[in-house]
Amino acid sequence: MALRELPLRAFSAVCRDLRPVVPSLRSSARRNASTDAVQELESSSSLTVPPPSQDVAKGFDPVAQSKARDGKLPSSRYQFKSPKYYRGPLHPHQPPPESDPSSRLFQPGPFSLPPLEQTYQSTIAPDLLALTYVHLPPGFRSPVKEVKGQRLREWTGDSPYYKNRPLRPPRGGGHLSLLTPPRTFRNVPKITKVTVHSMVKEAMENSGYIAVAGMVLQAITNVRSIPHQARHNVTGWGLRSGKTISVTADVEREDAYHFLGKLVNIVLPRIKEWKGVKGSSGDDSGNITFGLEPDQVALFPEVEVNYDSYPPKMIPGCHITIHTSATNDRDARLLLQSIGLPFYGKYIN
């Protein structure tokens, strides 16, 4: 054993002598701390490698190759399958991340770059920034103290009952409105989500209505719709708890932009005598809701293409809530106006 190692040891001894030469060379050429790291990177990218030549590419036929093969290829022993149930972080069989196509939760996409998103990025966002920017002179400090952390007031006074008492409710109203930070290029309002919701009263008697509503919502939003059950009995409205009464579709990202594009460019212009969205709509925190009647929902191209498949008079109306990252209704309305949604009446901010 020792004899076998001998040449290796001799070689390593020689190498040990040679070694100091190399670092000295390197140190003389060194310019800054990152030079070594840069040298370790490959100089050529794999993206710059030219594709295979035309004749190679044309001659390649994977099906013919596999048929010409005599036997089968040896099958891989281990084929990964994502576990059906999550058994905790210590279990050896862990599911892959959601972005992995072998995951059970994987959803393909995105499939396109929506025109509305491109318009937002190229035109709308810079314009909104220029419109809503507030310049403060250099050195300006706001005389109003910036409120950070807890915005609710404490109970101050001598009463012993003030100790550990829940904080006082906000001034002048039941809820604490969102703070609007100064506008920068980072917080230009954008569309975060669209919720399409449809409550069908007739579904109490006939559950077919809810099925149709779900299909319509799925067709127009490209998102699986979720049914909701009534939680309480309300005799005045004929509600019974536990009965499925409404469906919702939460539309995000690419689908949301496609949905809004269709709505603004195709559906809304075809509605007769539509005034627009009511100016008082909004929840004070940048989310704006409006409704569509059943005959207006039927104008969506996805419904129109097979209008006969839906039972007559079962197409539902719906409420569309557009969630934006704006912190007040004024900004949200400005954003929606810029994508082409008209508003009417008195604006309430």
Binding site: L131, T132, V134, H135, L136, P137, F140, S142, T180, P182, R183, N328, R330, D331, L334
Partner: peptide
Amino acid sequence: MNAGQNTARRIAS
């Protein structure tokens, strides 16, 4: 768009 209270114009005025 909190152009309400402290715009540069008002401060300057």
